[in-house]
């Protein structure tokens, strides 16, 4: 059986190798809100690759919740690159299956995050509840929509942003921060499993006064659904969300696509790639591109997850594992 598999693999590799001269295919496993971004980016990169190497390039996309996508890759989805919502999910590729080296995040500039985003509020037209900052979300009678941080990467950023705000404004007191976040989640009537689901709950079902959202999703919602219906409110302090990217070593080595995959991710850092990110409401890293889109993004004080939480691994175990702080705030008397 094993020898048969080996033969089959060799034959398959040979076929792939033969095909490689004609066309390279890459699979990018990404999270939910990047659909529009990568649709544009893939087109631009294919053109760039063709001009540079004369080789045709076909890029397939797979989208879903960030954690779900990581799990699919661990379970055998042959993604050459992953572009997920948070580093913890890419860490899992190392922790669970050793698909990538431990120090994957150091391999590309800026923590392997070519673009950033942050967490903002989406409110209904005219902002009837007068929501201006995180403090308004814990008030009585304010209904908040956010997905479940256990199933949604975006929701984890939301939660951590609220926690970070509470820490900084309440004198670095963990107990007070916990109380703040607990009061906030008491105002949440629905915990959807993903960011897009929550957006639907907020916009289509009319639930909630405020929707805590990725900045890029909020922009997209206002653009798609009309500025006459929703407004963006930027809090005084928020978190710097760094959605990272990585080449999946085990996959590219098997498929012989490392060069293309590497070039694909590096292209995200070029002026062209940064321009596309900015166009899709992600904050570009590159000064020139960032300057061009500066008018689009509100100036907001941002803290990083490393500063406040000591990195994703620590944040995850403290807050989101079973029995963690998020579970505690939902326990009776918690």
């Amino acid at each position: 059986m094993r020898s048969f598999l080996t033969v089959a693999t060799v034959v398959a590799a040979g076929l792939i190798g033969a095909a490689a001269n004609a066309e390279v295919t890459l699979l990018n496993a990404s999270y939910d809100p990047t659909r529009e971004l990568y649709k544009d980016f893939n087109e631009a990169f294919a053109k760039h690759w063709k001009a540079k190497t004369g080789q045709a390039m076909a890029i397939r996309q797979s989208h879903g919740g960030s954690g779900k996508q990581a799990r699919a890759v661990i379970d055998g989805l042959e993604a050459d690159v992953v572009t997920l919502a948070l580093a913890y999910d890419i860490d899992a590729l190392f922790d669970r299956a050793k698909l990538i080296p431990k120090d994957w995040q150091k391999r590309l500039p800026d923590n392997s995050s070519p673009y950033t985003s942050t967490i903002v509020f989406l409110v209904r037209e005219g902002n009837p509840k007068g929501i201006k900052d995180w403090g308004d979300l814990v008030k009585r009678g304010v209904s908040v929509v956010t997905p479940n941080p256990k199933t949604s990467g975006g929701a984890r950023w939301n939660y951590l942003a609220a926690w970070g705000y509470a820490l900084k404004s309440l004198g670095n007191d963990e107990a007070k921060a916990k109380d703040f976040v607990q009061r906030l989640y008491r105002n949440v009537p629905v915990l959807d499993t993903g960011a897009r689901g929550s957006l639907t709950t907020f916009t289509e079902r009319g639930i909630g006064d405020v929707f805590i959202s990725w900045e890029n999703e909020a922009f997209l919602a206002v653009k798609e659904l009309g500025p006459d219906k929703f407004e963006i409110v930027v809090p005084s302090l928020s978190i710097l969300a760094e959605p990272p990217v990585a080449v999946v070593d085990r996959v590219v080595d098997r498929r012989g696509t490392r060069k293309a995959a590497q070039a694909y991710l590096e292209y995200l850092y070029t002026p062209e790639g940064q321009e596309i990110a900015g166009r899709h409401y992600y904050r570009p890293r590159l000064q020139a591109a960032a300057a061009r889109y500066a008018g689009q993004f509100a100036k907001v004080k941002l803290f990083t997850i490393d500063e406040v939480f000591g990195g994703w691994q620590k944040a995850q175990t403290t807050h989101f594992t079973d029995g963690g702080v998020f579970d505690q705030i939902y326990q009776p008397g918690g």
């Binding site: 919740g65 954690g67 779900k68 799990r71 661990i74 899992a92 922790d95 669970r96 479940n148 256990k150 199933t151 499993t193 989101f320 594992t321 079973d322």
Partner: peptide, 12 residues
């Protein structure tokens, strides 16, 4: 069933 999914999302 949702709780099962949640646990899977945590790689548990």
């Amino acid at each position: 069933p949702l709780l099962i999914i949640i646990k899977l999302e945590q790689y548990d």
